[in-house]
C-alpha cells in the first residue's frame, strides 16, 4: 500500500482550466498590448513623427455611380456628366475644402495627352466654386521639376484663371504613411501638405497606356501622391496601385478619354499615340471607371492586374455595367 503522501498529485479539471485561462489571458493581453504599442511606436518621434491620414472622402449614399459622356469638349462633357449624377451640389457643399488630384507627371504640353487637360481642370474648379467650395486645391507630385510640369501642362494658368490654388510639393511636405492597410507603402513618404485641411477629394486622370502597369487611369493616378524614390515600387506596381486604391476613398473620380493615349504610355509624345475617343467618365467607383477606361484603350482586363486585385479586394466593381451606368452624348 502506498502512503497517501506518495500519490502523485493531479490537477482537477477546474484547476487546469483556470490555469490555462490565466496563461491564455496573459498571452492575449501581451500580444494585444504589443500590437497596440507597435502601431503607436511605428514612427520615430523625429521631424517625421506625424503621419498622413486619409479619411473617407466619399459622400454617403452616392457609391457605385458611373456616367460616361461622349463629347469632344471636355468642359461641356464634365458639366453634363455631373448633371446626370444630380449636380455637383450633391458632392460639394458650401464651405467644403476640395483637393483636386491631377496628373502632372511630365513637363509636356496638353497636346500630347500625358497629363490632365487644363480645360477639364478649369471646369472642375469652376464647378466646385459654383457649388460654394471655400477652397479648391490642386496638387500632384511630379518627381522632376514640379514647377515646370504645372507650367508647361497649362495647368498653372488654368488654376489661376479659375480661382483654385496650386500646391507645389516641397521636401518638407511629405510625411510617412502610417495608415492601417499600408504594407508595401508602410512608412513611405506621402505628399501630405494638401491633405491637411480638406474634406473632399476628386481625382482627375487622363486615360493612358502605361508601359509598366498596362494602363494609367484613376487608380494609378494616386501614385502621384507618393514621394521618395517611387520607381522602386514599380517592381510591384499592381500591388502598390491596389494598396493606394484601398486606402484612398475619393469623393469622385474623372477619367478623361477625350484623347486617349493608346500606345507608348505613360509619356507618349506623338499625336500618333493618341486616339480621339471622345469619352469622359465620371464615377464614384474607381474600379468601374478604370474598367470602362480599359475597354476604350482596347486592353484585355485580365492583363490589368490592378483592376482584378482591386475588385477582389472589394474596392469597387470591374463589371461597370452592373452599376446601371448612364451613357450620354453632347
Amino acid at each position: 500500500m502506498k502512503n497517501e503522501n506518495q500519490i502523485r498529485p493531479c490537477l482537477s479539471r477546474r484547476e487546469c482550466l483556470v490555469r490555462m485561462g490565466k496563461a491564455g489571458g496573459a498571452l492575449f493581453f501581451l500580444w494585444a498590448a504589443g500590437f497596440w504599442l507597435r502601431k503607436r511606436g511605428a514612427a520615430l518621434p523625429s521631424d517625421t513623427a506625424e503621419g498622413v491620414s486619409w479619411p473617407d472622402f466619399s459622400v454617403p449614399g452616392l457609391s457605385g455611380k458611373l456616367v460616361a459622356v461622349t463629347s469632344g469638349e471636355r468642359a461641356k462633357a464634365l458639366e453634363r456628366a455631373l448633371q446626370a449624377l444630380g449636380g455637383i451640389e450633391k458632392f460639394i457643399r458650401p464651405g467644403d475644402r476640395v483637393l483636386l488630384k491631377v496628373n502632372a507627371a511630365f513637363a509636356s504640353p496638353p497636346l500630347i495627352g500625358a497629363t490632365t487637360h487644363p480645360e477639364l481642370l478649369a471646369e472642375m474648379i469652376r464647378l466646385c466654386r459654383k457649388a460654394g467650395a471655400d477652397q479648391v486645391l490642386v496638387a500632384d507630385n511630379p518627381i522632376n521639376d514640379p514647377a515646370a510640369c504645372f507650367a508647361l501642362t497649362g495647368m498653372e494658368a488654368a488654376v489661376k484663371a479659375a480661382g483654385g490654388r496650386l500646391v507645389l510639393p516641397r521636401a518638407s511636405d511629405f510625411k510617412p504613411l502610417l495608415l492601417p492597410g499600408a504594407e508595401r507603402l508602410a512608412g513611405w513618404p506621402v505628399f501630405y501638405e494638401p491633405f491637411k485641411n480638406i474634406n473632399k477629394l476628386i481625382g482627375l486622370a487622363p486615360l493612358k497606356d502605361h508601359h509598366r502597369s498596362g494602363a494609367s487611369m484613376t487608380m494609378k493616378n494616386w501614385y502621384g501622391l507618393l514621394g521618395g524614390r517611387r520607381n522602386i515600387l514599380h517592381q510591384d506596381i499592381h500591388q502598390t496601385i491596389l494598396e493606394l486604391a484601398r486606402m484612398i476613398k475619393p469623393t469622385l473620380v474623372v477619367l478623361d478619354g477625350t484623347t486617349a493615349m493608346m500606345q507608348n504610355g505613360p509619356t507618349g509624345g506623338s499625336l500618333a499615340d493618341l486616339k480621339q475617343a471622345d469619352t469622359l467618365i465620371v464615377s464614384t467607383d474607381q474600379v468601374a471607371a478604370d474598367a470602362l477606361g480599359a475597354s476604350i484603350l482596347e486592353k484585355d482586363m485580365q492583363t490589368l492586374g490592378f483592376i482584378r486585385l482591386a475588385e477582389a479586394a472589394a474596392v469597387g466593381t470591374a463589371d461597370y455595367r452592373s452599376l446601371n451606368p448612364i451613357f450620354l452624348s453632347v
Binding site: 504589443g34 504599442l37 507597435r38 518621434p45
Partner: peptide, 13 residues
C-alpha cells in the same frame, strides 16, 4: 521602452 515612450520600436516585439 513601452513605458518611457508609449510605443514599441520595430524589432523589440
Amino acid at each position: 521602452f513601452a513605458i518611457t515612450t508609449g510605443g514599441l520600436h520595430p524589432g523589440l516585439w
